[in-house]
Computed example of a mutant assay.
Amino acid sequence: MTETEMSTPPLARGYPSVASLMGKDGDLAIFRRFSRLNMISLLKLQAELLYLEKEYDEILAGDIQEGADFHANFQNLIASSEGSNSDQLDILIRIKDKVKDYNELLIQVQQIDTFNVPSSHSVSLLREWLRDSRGGRCFLQSTESFTWHADNEPDFVTFGERNRPQDNLTAWLTMALLGLYHRAWGHKGKDGVIFDPESGAIRYYSNKWWDRIGKALTTIMASTLPALVVLALYFENDVLKRIYIMIGVTAVLAMVLSLTTNAKRIEIFAAVATFAAVEIVFIGSVPSHSNSSQVA
């Protein structure tokens, strides 16, 4: 990505500068979804509908008892607006308006849940810019200063591009490599995007290449692990000790896969079972190197 200077007039510091920042890179357009407030609003509307439903049932039962056929003839129900017995029609109109509000909010909340989740790198960059004396200059005050607080991080959404799910190990390795690159070269070179000329040390790097590097390294690590274990088993002469090593390594592998990847339980089981099968075949078919040398 070529270097691009993103500046805002000095007098526009504050929310205008944040808006400019977010407008130029969707990954930094990070907002709260206010899940708790959305849920309480839905619960309130739901409770109101419960009371309207109860009131409607009572009016309906009363009309039936009085011989009105509104429940079976909507034409008469509509015509009741011109008479004195319009309670059932009135309550249905109120229910229609309230159901509309409820359904609209329900759909909106569902759509919000489909928004992209910002990467930890983007969140950290935004916070760094807000704190920097040459960037956001800590302009947020009072309650607004908690907008992007760490406690609210599970509530964040972004307009940035959807990233493919990345396991914890790859994400950590990618961020570690990116941090080393920035400290060693990136801050001196022309890589990345400078969001504010006054705070040029704050740079944003495209995640695409770094994600690929991280995935390549984790793939290499995963591919060479079985060979390294087989090599360790080769140098162990005692068959029983080989089995103990196999059990320990298999257990560690299962734990690592569970903690650092997004794999499902059945996928982890399949990977571990395949790995264990390779170890078992090696233990059962390959003699220790000392014995094989003696035979030769």
Score class of each variant (00 low, 15 high):
Glu279Phe: 05
Ile220Arg: 10
Asn168Ile: 10
Asp196Leu: 01
Gly26Ala: 14
Ala68Arg: 15
Leu233Ile: 05
Glu3Met: 09
Asp87Met: 03
Ile266Met: 04
Ala184Met: 14
Arg265Phe: 03
Trp210Glu: 01
Ile213Asn: 02
His71Gln: 08
Tyr205His: 07
Ile247Pro: 00
Ala150Pro: 00
Ala61Thr: 14
Lys100Asp: 07
Thr4Phe: 09
Thr261Ile: 07
Val193Arg: 13
Glu104His: 14
Val123His: 11
Gly192Pro: 09
Ala150Phe: 06
Ser80Ile: 10
Leu43Gly: 02
Asp211Thr: 04
Tyr51Asn: 11
Gly214His: 02
Arg162Trp: 06
Ser124Leu: 08
Asn116Ala: 15
Gly26Pro: 00
Gln294Leu: 15
Arg137Phe: 01
Ser41His: 09
Ile59Lys: 13
Asn85Asp: 14
Lys215Val: 01
Gly284Ala: 12
Met246Tyr: 02
Ile91Ala: 01
Leu45Pro: 00
Leu169Arg: 05
Pro118Ala: 04
Leu43Pro: 01
Asp101Val: 01
Ser292His: 04
Leu253Ala: 04
Gln166His: 02
Ile247Glu: 13
Asn76Tyr: 08
Leu21Met: 08
Ser122Thr: 03
Thr170Tyr: 01
Leu42Asp: 03
Ile220Val: 11
Leu231Tyr: 08
Asn103Ile: 13
Pro165Ser: 09
Leu228Asn: 10
Phe115Tyr: 09
Ile64Glu: 15
Ile59Trp: 08
Asp63Met: 12
Glu104Leu: 15
His187Arg: 15
Leu105Gly: 07
Phe74Thr: 04
His289Asp: 01
Ser290Asp: 12
Lys190Cys: 09
Met246Val: 02
Thr174Arg: 15
Ser20Arg: 09
Phe275Cys: 06
Thr274Leu: 15
Gln75Gly: 15
Ala184Phe: 14
Thr147Trp: 07
Ser86Glu: 06
Arg32Ser: 06
Tyr51Pro: 00
Asp238Glu: 11
Cys138Ile: 02
Ser20Asp: 05
Ile220Leu: 13
Phe115Gln: 09
Phe235Pro: 00
Ala216Phe: 13
Met221Glu: 09
Gly136Leu: 04
Asp113Gly: 05
Ala222Ile: 01
Thr219Arg: 14
Gly14Arg: 07
Asp25Glu: 12
Thr218Trp: 03
Ile283Thr: 03
Met1Leu: 06
Leu45His: 06
Asp69Val: 13
Phe275Gln: 11
Gly23Leu: 07
Leu89Lys: 08
Asp132Arg: 04
Leu180Ala: 13
Leu180Asp: 13
Ser20Tyr: 02
Ala271Gly: 01
Asp90Glu: 13
Asn76Cys: 03
Val239Leu: 12
Arg127Val: 00
Glu58Leu: 12
Ala227Tyr: 11
Pro16Glu: 01
Arg265Met: 06
Leu37Ile: 11
Ile268Cys: 05
Leu257Phe: 04
Leu240Lys: 15
Asp63Ile: 10
Ala201Leu: 08
Glu198Phe: 06
Ala273Trp: 13
Phe115Thr: 00
Gly136Met: 04
Tyr51Gly: 04
Val230Ile: 14
Ala270Cys: 04
Ser7Cys: 07
Ala270Tyr: 05
Val239Asp: 10
Glu48Asn: 08
Glu3Phe: 05
Ile107Gln: 13
Lys54Ala: 15
Ile91Pro: 00
Thr143Met: 07
Leu231Asp: 09
Ala232Trp: 06
Asp211Ser: 02
Met39Val: 05
Leu177Lys: 05
Ala263Pro: 00
Leu173Ile: 10
Lys190Gln: 14
Thr8Cys: 11
Ala79Pro: 02
Glu82Leu: 11
Arg183Asp: 14
Gln166Met: 12
Ala61Asn: 14
His71Phe: 04
Leu52Glu: 14
